[in-house]
């Protein structure tokens, strides 16, 4: 084949909806990978203005989170993040799939996830201490699969990964976040997670 065309073929053009999907996964990953700082809260406000829409569940979640981010005190949000997710011993809310699927951390679902990641040629970076079933890491994988494989084969790969490693437990995590005591930010972040993943699930079912 024509070698000149190869670079084009290896960088597939994304449709608008795949771009939007990749951006949603990036935002969800950032929400949970570490405490939001002032810059990220500012961007959430802008994204809320863009994606906010009272007529859809996702749009409503964006409106709420955008408004919350606009008025949020970064220090208070950081404190909430630390209290909910980083408490030594037993955090108030777990962000790891194994916990919801098997009842414990580092369980069999994690072994299966590592197997699937190996098949995809993916692995954890050196220095990352969170296990691969952290919600932020799974969002990163999905985003990677979207931007590298928007064709039919890639979509099937996305569908397999989502259905196996995210769909079975995100609702349980969202329920835990929504019920977190004295939390003002993450229960609303959970509504964005729930609304977006529900759309993803339904959309994959249409393949």
């Amino acid at each position: 084949m024509n070698a000149v065309l190869e670079p084009v073929a290896s960088a597939p053009a994304l449709t608008d909806e795949d771009r939007a999907r990749a951006e949603h996964y990036a935002v969800l990953s950032r929400l949970f990978s570490s405490a939001p700082d002032a810059g990220f809260l500012h961007r959430l406000t802008a994204l809320g203005a863009h994606w906010g829409n009272p007529e859809s569940a996702l749009g409503q979640a964006w409106l709420t989170l955008g408004e919350l981010a606009r008025n949020a005190d970064p220090e208070a949000v950081e404190e909430e993040y630390t209290r909910l997710f980083l408490t030594i011993g037993r955090p108030e809310v777990m962000l790891y799939g194994s916990f919801y699927l098997a009842g414990f951390l580092m369980e069999k679902p994690l072994v299966e996830l590592r197997h699937d990641l190996a098949e995809l040629g993916l692995g954890r970076r050196l220095g990352v201490t969170e296990s691969e079933d952290h919600i932020a890491a799974l969002c990163d994988v999905m985003r990677h699969l979207i931007v590298t494989g928007p064709d039919a084969t890639g979509l099937a790969r996305q569908q397999f990964f989502f259905n196996r490693h995210i769909a079975p437990w995100f609702e349980a995590m969202c329920a835990a976040l929504e019920g977190a005591p004295e939390a003002g930010f993450y229960p609303h972040a959970a509504q964005l997670v729930r609304a977006y993943f529900e759309i993803e699930r339904l959309a994959f079912d249409m393949l």
């Binding site: 939007a20 951006e23 994204l47 759309i199």
Partner: peptide, 13 residues
């Protein structure tokens, strides 16, 4: 479906 659900225009971003 994705467009109707609000996962469409990347617009501002």
């Amino acid at each position: 479906f994705l467009l109707a659900a609000g996962v469409g225009s990347a617009g501002a971003v």
